[in-house]
Computed example of a mutant assay.
Amino acid sequence: MSSVYSNMRTKLKKGDLVKVITGKDKGKIGKIISFVPKKNRAIVEGVKIIKKHEKATQTSKGGIIEKEAPIDISNVMLVCPHCNKPTRIASKFLDDGTKVRVCQKCNETI
């Protein structure tokens, strides 16, 4: 399994700009930091912030820290870099045989 894609069912990649379409963080936009492939979830920058109580160790101070929790992939939608709108993703083969992702709204390659 590739580390760039979360799994074979999604067309999102690490580093993509996504918008949350449902849940308590609806409307927030952030970049995908990482994936949790077995649970079909992604960690998005600035979305679903939780407080975690961490014990002090030799390397870290400890205390209450804020971090991002995983959000289900079905709750986010890719934001097209050309039209700046949340969109579905289509796949298309170019003339040289490479497969690219295409915005469904403006038909530009992503």
Rank of each mutant, 00 (worst) to 15 (best):
residue 47 V to M: 04
residue 37 P to E: 15
residue 54 E to L: 14
residue 54 E to D: 08
residue 84 N to Q: 13
residue 60 S to A: 14
residue 12 L to S: 03
residue 47 V to R: 07
residue 31 K to P: 05
residue 34 S to L: 09
residue 27 G to M: 01
residue 22 T to Y: 03
residue 107 N to A: 08
residue 56 A to M: 09
residue 82 H to R: 10
residue 47 V to S: 06
residue 3 S to N: 11
residue 90 A to Q: 15
residue 61 K to H: 12
residue 2 S to C: 03
residue 46 G to Q: 05
residue 63 G to C: 10
residue 101 R to Q: 08
residue 9 R to D: 11
residue 26 K to P: 01
residue 70 P to T: 08
residue 108 E to V: 02
residue 98 T to F: 09
residue 60 S to G: 11
residue 50 I to W: 05
residue 98 T to E: 14
residue 12 L to P: 04
residue 94 L to C: 02
residue 27 G to Y: 09
residue 54 E to M: 15
residue 84 N to Y: 01
residue 74 S to Q: 12
residue 28 K to H: 00
residue 17 L to Q: 04
residue 23 G to R: 01
residue 3 S to V: 01
residue 43 I to D: 07
residue 53 H to N: 15
residue 74 S to R: 12
residue 22 T to D: 03
residue 42 A to L: 11
residue 45 E to R: 09
residue 60 S to M: 12
residue 95 D to V: 01
residue 76 V to F: 03
residue 89 I to G: 02
residue 25 D to R: 04
residue 77 M to Q: 01
residue 72 D to P: 00
residue 87 T to Q: 02
residue 23 G to L: 09
residue 55 K to E: 08
residue 11 K to E: 07
residue 75 N to D: 10
residue 45 E to S: 13
residue 79 V to F: 08
residue 64 I to S: 13
residue 45 E to W: 14
residue 34 S to V: 00
residue 6 S to W: 03
residue 21 I to D: 02
residue 82 H to Y: 12
residue 29 I to E: 15
residue 91 S to D: 01
residue 28 K to S: 04
residue 80 C to H: 09
residue 66 E to Y: 08
residue 12 L to M: 07
residue 15 G to S: 10
residue 1 M to A: 11
residue 2 S to V: 02
residue 53 H to R: 15
residue 75 N to Q: 13
residue 12 L to K: 00
residue 42 A to C: 06
residue 62 G to P: 03
residue 5 Y to F: 12
residue 85 K to L: 06
residue 35 F to K: 06
residue 43 I to E: 08
residue 46 G to V: 12
residue 27 G to R: 02
residue 88 R to Q: 08
residue 76 V to G: 03
residue 95 D to T: 05
residue 19 K to D: 03
residue 40 N to S: 14
residue 8 M to E: 07
residue 88 R to G: 07
residue 69 A to D: 14
residue 38 K to I: 06
residue 32 I to E: 07
residue 10 T to C: 05
residue 95 D to A: 15
residue 61 K to V: 07
residue 109 T to Y: 01
residue 14 K to T: 11
residue 62 G to K: 08
residue 7 N to Q: 04
residue 108 E to L: 06
residue 1 M to R: 05
residue 94 L to M: 11
residue 36 V to C: 10
residue 63 G to E: 13
residue 47 V to Q: 01
residue 53 H to M: 15
residue 108 E to S: 09
residue 9 R to Y: 04
residue 48 K to M: 09
residue 83 C to D: 13
residue 35 F to G: 02
residue 67 K to G: 04
residue 87 T to W: 00
residue 23 G to F: 03
residue 19 K to G: 00
residue 90 A to W: 13
residue 17 L to K: 01
residue 11 K to V: 02
residue 69 A to Q: 10
residue 74 S to V: 05
residue 29 I to C: 10
residue 48 K to H: 14
residue 64 I to Q: 14
residue 25 D to W: 08
residue 56 A to P: 08
residue 31 K to F: 11
residue 88 R to H: 11
residue 90 A to K: 15
residue 23 G to I: 04
residue 63 G to Q: 13
residue 48 K to A: 10
residue 60 S to F: 11
residue 79 V to E: 06
residue 100 V to L: 05
residue 18 V to R: 01
residue 34 S to N: 06
residue 77 M to A: 04
residue 18 V to Y: 02
residue 104 Q to C: 11
residue 41 R to I: 05
residue 31 K to Q: 12
residue 4 V to R: 13
residue 4 V to P: 00
residue 22 T to C: 07
residue 105 K to R: 10
residue 72 D to H: 14
residue 93 F to S: 12
residue 88 R to A: 04
residue 100 V to Q: 01
residue 65 I to Y: 15
residue 108 E to I: 00
residue 107 N to V: 03
residue 108 E to P: 00
residue 3 S to W: 13
